[in-house]
Protein backbone atom coordinates (compact mmCIF):
# COMPACT_ATOMS: atom_id res chain seq x y z
CA UNK A 1 0.00 0.00 0.00
CA UNK A 2 2.73 2.44 1.05
CA UNK A 3 4.73 1.44 -2.03
CA UNK A 4 1.74 2.29 -4.21
CA UNK A 5 1.49 5.70 -2.54
CA UNK A 6 5.05 6.43 -3.64
CA UNK A 7 3.78 6.34 -7.24
CA UNK A 8 1.19 9.02 -6.50
CA UNK A 9 3.45 12.03 -7.28
CA UNK A 10 4.33 10.44 -10.63
CA UNK A 11 0.64 9.99 -11.40
CA UNK A 12 -0.09 13.60 -10.48
CA UNK A 13 2.81 14.78 -12.65
CA UNK A 14 1.52 12.75 -15.61
CA UNK A 15 -2.01 14.16 -15.23
CA UNK A 16 -0.77 17.75 -14.99
CA UNK A 17 1.71 17.21 -17.81
CA UNK A 18 -1.12 15.93 -19.98
CA UNK A 19 -3.14 19.07 -19.29
CA UNK A 20 -0.18 21.30 -20.13
CA UNK A 21 0.45 19.43 -23.38
CA UNK A 22 -3.20 19.86 -24.29
CA UNK A 23 -3.04 23.54 -23.39
CA UNK A 24 0.13 24.15 -25.40
CA UNK A 25 -1.27 22.61 -28.57
CA UNK A 26 -1.08 25.43 -31.12
CA UNK A 27 -4.10 24.00 -32.96
CA UNK A 28 -6.31 24.67 -29.97
CA UNK A 29 -8.09 28.02 -29.99
CA UNK A 30 -9.39 28.88 -26.52
CA UNK A 31 -11.57 31.62 -28.02
CA UNK A 32 -13.42 29.21 -30.24
CA UNK A 33 -17.16 29.28 -29.74
CA UNK A 34 -18.46 25.77 -30.35
CA UNK A 35 -21.33 25.66 -32.84
CA UNK A 36 -24.50 23.71 -32.12
CA UNK A 37 -25.39 23.78 -35.81
CA UNK A 38 -22.87 21.20 -37.04
CA UNK A 39 -24.67 18.06 -38.26
CA UNK A 40 -27.97 19.81 -37.58
CA UNK A 41 -30.46 20.95 -40.20
CA UNK A 42 -29.87 24.53 -41.31
CA UNK A 43 -32.06 27.00 -39.41
CA UNK A 44 -35.36 28.29 -40.73
CA UNK A 45 -35.02 31.70 -42.33
CA UNK A 46 -36.26 33.64 -45.35
CA UNK A 47 -34.49 36.76 -46.54
CA UNK A 48 -35.46 39.29 -49.18
CA UNK A 49 -32.96 40.11 -51.92
CA UNK A 50 -30.74 43.15 -51.44
CA UNK A 51 -32.65 46.10 -52.86
CA UNK A 52 -31.11 47.32 -56.11
CA UNK A 53 -29.43 44.00 -56.94
CA UNK A 54 -30.50 41.48 -59.59
CA UNK A 55 -29.40 38.58 -57.36
CA UNK A 56 -32.40 36.69 -55.87
CA UNK A 57 -32.96 36.43 -52.10
CA UNK A 58 -32.11 33.48 -49.89
CA UNK A 59 -34.20 31.24 -47.70
CA UNK A 60 -33.92 27.82 -46.05
CA UNK A 61 -35.62 26.17 -49.04
CA UNK A 62 -32.80 27.28 -51.37
CA UNK A 63 -30.27 25.27 -49.34
CA UNK A 64 -32.01 21.95 -49.95
CA UNK A 65 -31.87 19.91 -53.13
CA UNK A 66 -28.82 21.43 -54.77
CA UNK A 67 -26.57 19.19 -56.82
CA UNK A 68 -23.55 19.78 -54.61
CA UNK A 69 -23.12 21.10 -51.08
CA UNK A 70 -23.34 24.89 -51.02
CA UNK A 71 -21.33 27.55 -49.24
CA UNK A 72 -23.22 30.16 -47.22
CA UNK A 73 -21.10 33.22 -46.51
CA UNK A 74 -22.15 35.93 -44.08
CA UNK A 75 -20.70 39.26 -45.19
CA UNK A 76 -21.18 43.00 -45.00
CA UNK A 77 -19.74 45.98 -46.82
CA UNK A 78 -18.68 47.50 -43.47
CA UNK A 79 -16.66 44.39 -42.61
CA UNK A 80 -13.04 44.99 -43.54
CA UNK A 81 -11.81 41.36 -43.52
CA UNK A 82 -14.75 40.47 -45.83
CA UNK A 83 -13.00 42.49 -48.54
CA UNK A 84 -9.95 40.21 -48.37
CA UNK A 85 -12.09 37.12 -48.13
CA UNK A 86 -14.08 38.18 -51.20
CA UNK A 87 -11.17 37.34 -53.51
CA UNK A 88 -10.85 33.84 -52.02
CA UNK A 89 -14.56 33.14 -52.40
CA UNK A 90 -14.59 34.51 -55.96
CA UNK A 91 -11.72 32.20 -56.88
CA UNK A 92 -13.57 29.22 -55.34
CA UNK A 93 -16.60 30.04 -57.47
CA UNK A 94 -14.75 30.78 -60.70
CA UNK A 95 -12.02 28.15 -60.57
CA UNK A 96 -13.64 25.37 -58.58
CA UNK A 97 -17.29 25.80 -59.46
CA UNK A 98 -18.51 26.17 -55.87
CA UNK A 99 -22.13 27.29 -55.39
CA UNK A 100 -21.93 30.36 -53.16
CA UNK A 101 -24.84 31.97 -51.33
CA UNK A 102 -24.56 35.11 -49.28
CA UNK A 103 -26.22 36.62 -46.23
CA UNK A 104 -25.71 40.36 -46.25
CA UNK A 105 -25.60 41.04 -42.52
CA UNK A 106 -26.88 44.35 -41.15
CA UNK A 107 -25.86 46.26 -44.21
CA UNK A 108 -27.38 49.18 -46.07
CA UNK A 109 -28.60 47.83 -49.46
CA UNK A 110 -26.96 50.76 -51.26
CA UNK A 111 -23.60 50.10 -49.59
CA UNK A 112 -23.84 46.39 -50.34
CA UNK A 113 -24.69 47.03 -54.00
CA UNK A 114 -21.77 49.45 -54.35
CA UNK A 115 -19.40 47.04 -52.63
CA UNK A 116 -20.39 44.19 -54.99
CA UNK A 117 -20.25 46.46 -58.04
CA UNK A 118 -16.68 47.35 -57.10
CA UNK A 119 -15.41 43.87 -56.21
CA UNK A 120 -17.64 41.70 -58.36
CA UNK A 121 -20.55 39.51 -57.33
CA UNK A 122 -19.75 35.79 -57.01
CA UNK A 123 -22.97 35.07 -55.08
CA UNK A 124 -25.73 33.02 -56.74
CA UNK A 125 -28.18 34.27 -54.12
CA UNK A 126 -27.98 36.97 -51.48
CA UNK A 127 -30.38 37.45 -48.60
CA UNK A 128 -30.50 40.83 -46.92
CA UNK A 129 -30.48 40.44 -43.14
CA UNK A 130 -31.11 44.00 -42.05
CA UNK A 131 -32.26 43.19 -38.52
CA UNK A 132 -29.60 40.56 -37.85
CA UNK A 133 -32.32 38.12 -36.84
CA UNK A 134 -31.30 35.48 -39.40
CA UNK A 135 -27.77 35.87 -38.05
CA UNK A 136 -29.00 34.84 -34.60
CA UNK A 137 -30.79 31.83 -36.14
CA UNK A 138 -27.40 30.80 -37.55
CA UNK A 139 -25.73 31.31 -34.16
CA UNK A 140 -23.55 34.03 -35.60
CA UNK A 141 -20.91 35.58 -33.37
CA UNK A 142 -19.40 37.97 -35.89
CA UNK A 143 -18.81 38.72 -39.55
CA UNK A 144 -17.54 37.07 -41.67
CA UNK A 145 -18.62 33.51 -41.03
CA UNK A 146 -18.86 30.80 -43.63
CA UNK A 147 -20.92 27.61 -43.56
CA UNK A 148 -20.98 24.55 -45.78
CA UNK A 149 -24.47 23.10 -46.13
CA UNK A 150 -25.07 19.61 -47.51
CA UNK A 151 -27.54 18.82 -50.27
CA UNK A 152 -30.14 17.71 -47.70
CA UNK A 153 -29.89 21.03 -45.87
CA UNK A 154 -27.61 19.79 -43.07
CA UNK A 155 -24.93 22.15 -41.84
CA UNK A 156 -21.62 20.35 -42.34
CA UNK A 157 -19.01 22.91 -41.42
CA UNK A 158 -18.60 26.38 -39.97
CA UNK A 159 -15.66 28.69 -40.36
CA UNK A 160 -15.52 31.67 -38.01
CA UNK A 161 -13.62 34.67 -39.34
CA UNK A 162 -12.26 35.39 -42.79
CA UNK A 163 -11.05 32.51 -44.97
CA UNK A 164 -7.86 34.37 -45.81
CA UNK A 165 -4.28 33.16 -45.90
CA UNK A 166 -2.74 29.83 -46.80
CA UNK A 167 -3.64 27.97 -43.62
CA UNK A 168 -7.26 29.10 -43.52
CA UNK A 169 -7.83 28.46 -47.22
CA UNK A 170 -6.26 24.99 -47.00
CA UNK A 171 -8.47 24.20 -44.02
CA UNK A 172 -11.57 25.42 -45.81
CA UNK A 173 -10.73 23.55 -49.02
CA UNK A 174 -10.24 20.39 -47.02
CA UNK A 175 -13.69 20.84 -45.48
CA UNK A 176 -15.13 21.43 -48.94
CA UNK A 177 -13.51 18.27 -50.23
CA UNK A 178 -14.83 16.28 -47.28
CA UNK A 179 -18.30 17.67 -47.87
CA UNK A 180 -18.05 16.62 -51.51
CA UNK A 181 -18.27 20.13 -52.92
CA UNK A 182 -14.75 19.93 -54.36
CA UNK A 183 -14.03 17.02 -56.66
CA UNK A 184 -10.42 16.54 -55.63
CA UNK A 185 -7.92 18.41 -53.56
CA UNK A 186 -6.29 20.05 -56.56
CA UNK A 187 -3.34 22.29 -57.21
Amino acid sequence: MTRMLALLPLLVAVVFGGFFLWGLNPERDPNEVPSVLISQPAPEFALEPVAGLETPGLSRADLVGNETPVVVNVFASWCVPCRAEHAVLTSLVERDGIVLFGINYKDEPDDAARWLAELGNPYARIGSDLSGRAGIEWGLSGVPETFIVGTDGTVLYRYVGPVVGEVAVAKFREALTQAGALKQEGV
Binding site: N31, V33, S131, G132, R133, I136, G139, L140, S141, G142
Partner: peptide, 20 residues
Protein backbone atom coordinates in the same frame (compact mmCIF):
# COMPACT_ATOMS: atom_id res chain seq x y z
CA UNK B 1 -21.94 37.62 -25.09
CA UNK B 2 -20.67 35.49 -27.98
CA UNK B 3 -18.32 38.22 -29.19
CA UNK B 4 -16.68 39.28 -25.96
CA UNK B 5 -16.88 35.80 -24.36
CA UNK B 6 -16.43 36.52 -20.68
CA UNK B 7 -18.97 39.28 -20.43
CA UNK B 8 -22.71 38.88 -19.98
CA UNK B 9 -24.99 40.41 -22.61
CA UNK B 10 -26.45 42.74 -20.00
CA UNK B 11 -23.21 44.71 -19.76
CA UNK B 12 -21.90 44.27 -23.29
CA UNK B 13 -21.99 46.92 -25.98
CA UNK B 14 -21.47 44.44 -28.83
CA UNK B 15 -24.04 44.46 -31.61
CA UNK B 16 -24.92 40.79 -31.21
CA UNK B 17 -25.38 41.27 -27.46
CA UNK B 18 -27.83 44.09 -28.17
CA UNK B 19 -29.71 41.91 -30.68
CA UNK B 20 -29.91 39.10 -28.14
Amino acid sequence: CVVCLNQDIDSSNAGVARDL
